[in-house]
Design a binder for these strands. Structure first.
Length: 828
RNA sequence: GCCCUUGUGGCGGAAUCGGUAGACGCGUUGGACUUAAAAUCCAAUCGGGGCUCAACCUCGGUGCCAGUUCAAGUCUGGCCAAGGGCACCA
């Protein structure tokens, strides 16, 4: 065995060998229990960044650990390869998006292999290939047939920079999630998926996801935004037959209504406007149209509005009040109209103060009544000025008042969600074409399944501005109607790439199936994913869409489970100098350089070492250096002792009594096995796993430096210690341990060896340190035999000279004995 | 404003059940080896006080204030701060 550690040499050698031997292929005919470990697949942007390295290393270690524990592990990789960057590259450099994407995939595949990741490449999935997007299109058609995909004209989010519409989930603070450009509203006819049909179950099933963090679950719950309240219908005094329904979560405040607000885009607003007010209302509406989402939704902005001139009648008490339009009412939520109770709603209060609207208190804290002259009272209380409901607690009144409205026919209970339907049309080229045609006679027609895939045309001009390149194809648009055979035109919009990524994890179970997206038995066998690992940025987007897809496909009878990801680990960001690595900040670290200078094992070890996976990780050059030194230290330990070690003869007979120092080392090894196994099993605490590698290594060094000559027992113990260290480190330092395994006479690959077992009796020190406290403060530590009874421990503690001295002349009030650990003597 | 997460040395962080706070590492300081450097190895490293020094002793210390307990980083209540999510959603 070479004395010096040359990672570059051994890493290449083993990567090649593993590939030739198919070490990481997942057999279908195994009788072992299955385990599905999955990283969120990357967009092939060109090169791996450290976030990828962290993500994939975490999942890889999990996959290897589970495999060693006896599972048949599925650990696949693929490419989320449709999307705008490829198209932008085409526009800028004239490259073909398909070629650009292929080249990036080739380069990044090489990098993934250099990292030593244990993927089954036979199951690779690439979303931009026809053999994949055929099935994305097919799934769209199934959703369409089920009524879950529909086309409608709506106000949609438009990003001018990207030249396409966006889903609500892709608008972050009023800006495009990809390019940060401010999003505008446009009225367009677009394809939507009816995710709102699943709002309740998507919310409710979050409770089932015990293996997900609360942060992600809460983000999804907030996004779905369930609220319970009532709809009340208000007759319009001036227009018989016309009603304005409002949604409220505060039915208890109906006797306090003093005006009513409709959104500027409210459907009946023109009818509700009197001729005298028409000019002012039109001007107000025009102004509202011009505003961006950011301006419109800013809570700091002073509220504005104009009266419509008409009036509504409160069905509860016959009171009349004016109708206004104001842009703090949103047309997309509830009914687009709001009943205003300035005394008990802060927004209504602000508005009423500005326009001198009347106010009427209807809820009061009986102990400390407020007249609501300076601010709205929004706390619980008791009803006043509310006729037969006076004196009722407001929580009870919500129900009672709604019941009255239901009985008298002007209201109903209503559950409302903030979630909107998912807009999936994109006016871009590099995506899966939406498989529908528009016939002059028959209208919208789905493309028959036997005509899939609808292939992306290649005769397109990427230099066009203001429209999708796909529309420049001469071969794509014109087609025949599948029903009447007459002229029809194809849909030129493509699907949101999040459609492609909403089902890729299912495809891995049956990646090469040419007849269907996946076999039902195979998908039921492998799914749900046992451990999903990825960035928190997908807390809503990808993870919500995938949950929706799984539920919809379950309802379509394509699979039998209803949640795709049993356990979710959201890894923290990789930082450098305290801020996120980014090209613009110039603080990126190129994985290639790390591989070249230190090797992949150092990169893997370091990226797992300093922080628990869920927390942010601060990259430091000194830290990499430290890990490299540690691997060198391990290598030296092995190479300088290689002559004494035999991995095939390293069993220690527990019946044979070992010499003290040997017994101690064997115990340390067992403790390491136990500690490391538990740390990986409990939330993947790789940082403490690595601490334990170091502790074990240090312990073997200490043991070795205390021995001059090694006898047979010593050699056996050393073989046991080193073999165990190599096995324990094998999921992380995948190349170094494989090399050592072979150099020490191991057969096969170390990555096919079973995980180490520990002996509970040996996984603890032979004696224990008894901590003796007086009044809760540590005063003495005594080495004792662990077999001592509680009474003996107490006696030992009281006999200690130091304790005798401290308790002398004092009364012992109480003595607490914690078995094998501690005695606390309480004195007065 | 509402919700979630997190607060421990100079730094990253550790501490199954409430039971020795600071594992392991980074950094720093000192030393060994070397002509020198690198590499490697050894040692020290929370703060205040006591003792001429040291060993040692003692007090304080896990964001803040209370509480429960023989015992609190850990449990309870109330605050504060940072990060993230949602937000004129009626």
């Amino acid at each position: 065995m070479k004395e010096a550690y040359f990672p570059q040499e051994i890493e290449k050698k083993w990567q090649k060998k593993w590939e030739e031997d198919g070490v990481f292929r997942t057999p279908e005919d195994s009788n072992k229990p299955k385990y599905y470990a999955l990283s969120m697949f990357p967009y092939p942007s060109g090169k791996l960044h450290m976030g990828h390295v962290r993500n994939y290393t975490i999942t890889d270690v999990i996959a290897r650990f589970k495999k060693a524990q006896g599972y048949n592990v599925l650990h696949p990789m693929g490419w989320d390869s449709f999307g705008l960057p490829a198209e932008n590259a085409a526009m800028k450099h004239g490259a073909d998006p398909a070629k650009w994407t292929d080249e990036n995939i080739a380069y990044m595949t090489k990098q993934l292999k250099m990292l030593g990741l244990s993927y089954d490449w036979d199951r690779e999935v690439t979303t931009c290939k026809p053999d994949y997007y055929k099935w994305t299109q097919w799934l769209f058609l199934q959703l369409y047939k089920k009524g879950l995909a529909y086309k409608k004209e709506a106000a949609v989010n438009w990003c001018e920079e990207c030249g396409t519409v966006l889903a609500n989930e892709q608008v972050i603070d009023g800006k495009c999630w990809r390019c940060d450009h401010v999003v505008e509203k446009k009225y367009l006819s677009q394809w939507f998926l009816k995710i709102t049909d699943y709002a309740e179950i998507l919310l409710k099933d979050l409770d089932k996801l015990e293996g997900w963090g609360d942060n992600v679950k809460t983000m999804q719950a907030n996004w779905i935004g369930k609220s319970q309240g009532a709809i009340f219908k208000f007759k319009v005094k001036e227009i018989p037959g016309l009603e304005v329904p409002v949604y409220t979560t505060r039915p208890d405040t109906v006797y306090g209504i003093t005006y009513l607000v409709v959104a500027p885009e409210y459907k009946d607003i023109e009818k509700l406007t009197t001729p005298e007010n028409k000019e002012a209302v039109e001007a107000y509406r025009a102004n509202a149209r011009k505003m961006t989402e950011i301006e419109r939704l800013s809570t700091d902005r002073v509220k504005t509005g104009v009266p419509l001139g008409t009036h509504c009648i409160n069905p509860f008490n016959g009171e009349e009040f004016p109708l206004w339009t104001a842009d703090y009412a949103l047309v997309e939520y509830g009914t687009g109209a709001v009943m205003a109770v300035p005394t008990h709603d802060t927004r209504d209060f602000d508005f009423a103060k500005k326009y001198n609207m009347p106010m009427k208190v209807v809820i009061q804290d009986p102990e400390n009544p407020s007249d609501c002259s300076t601010e709205a009272y929004t706390e619980p209380g008791v009803l006043v000025n509310s006729e037969e409901f006076n004196g009722m607690k407001n929580e009870e009144a919500k129900k009672a008042i709604t019941e009255k409205a239901v009985k008298e026919g002007f209201g109903e209970f209503k559950t409302q969600y903030r979630l909107r339907d998912w807009l999936i049309s994109r006016q871009r080229y590099w995506g899966a074409p939406i498989p529908v045609v528009y016939c002059d006679k028959c209208g919208i027609q789905p493309v028959p399944e036997d005509q899939l895939p609808v292939m992306l045309p290649t005769d397109v001009d990427f230099s066009v501005v203001g429209k999708s390149p796909i529309t420049t194809s001469k071969t794509f648009k014109d087609t025949v109607c599948p029903v009447c055979g007459g002229h029809a035109v194809r849909e030129t919009d493509t699907m949101d790439t999040f459609m492609c990524s909403s089902w890729y994890y299912l495809r891995y179970s049956d990646a090469k199936n040419a007849n269907k997206p996946f076999d039902r038995d195979l998908v039921n066998k492998w799914l749900p994913v046992d451990q999903y690992v990825g960035g928190i940025e997908h807390a809503i987007l990808h993870l919500l869409y995938s949950r929706f897809f799984t539920k919809a496909l379950r309802d379509l009878g394509l699979l039998d489970f209803d949640e795709p990801f049993k356990n979710l680990l959201t890894q923290g960001m990789v930082l450098k100098d305290g801020s996120k690595m980014s090209k613009s900040k110039g603080n990126t670290v190129d994985p290639d350089e790390i591989f070249e200078n230190y090797g992949a094992d150092t990169a893997r070890l370091f990226i797992l070492s300093d922080s628990p996976p869920a927390r942010d990780f601060d990259w430091s050059d000194a830290g990499v250096e430290g890990c490299y030194k540690f691997l060198n230290r391990v290598w030296r330990l092995i190479s300088t002792n290689a002559e004494f070690i035999d991995v095939n003869h390293c069993e220690i007979d527990p019946a044979v009594k070992l010499e003290k120092s040997n017994d101690d080392l064997v115990r340390i090894v067992h403790m390491a096995i136990k500690g490391i196994t538990n740390d990986i099993s409990n939330d993947f605490q790789f940082n403490t796993v690595i601490s334990k590698y170091r502790e074990l290594t240090n312990a073997i060094y200490d043991w070795r430096s205390a021995k001059k000559e090694l006898n047979t027992e010593d050699k056996n113990v050393l073989s046991f210690a080193i073999t165990t260290l190599i096995k324990l480190m094998s999921p992380v330092a995948v190349h170094l341990t494989e090399e050592a395994w072979h150099e020490l006479g191991g057969k096969g690959s170390i990555h096919e060896q079973a995980w180490c077992e520990w002996d509970e009796n040996l996984a603890k020190a032979s004696s224990i340190t008894l901590v003796v406290q007086v009044n809760g403060k540590v005063k003495d530590k005594i080495e004792v035999d662990e077999a001592l009874s509680q009474d003996e421990l107490k006696a030992t503690a009281l006999n200690s000279p130091r304790i005798k001295e401290l308790t002398d002349g004092k009364t012992i009030v109480k003595t607490i004995v914690v078995p094998k650990k501690l005695v606390n003597i309480v004195v007065k």
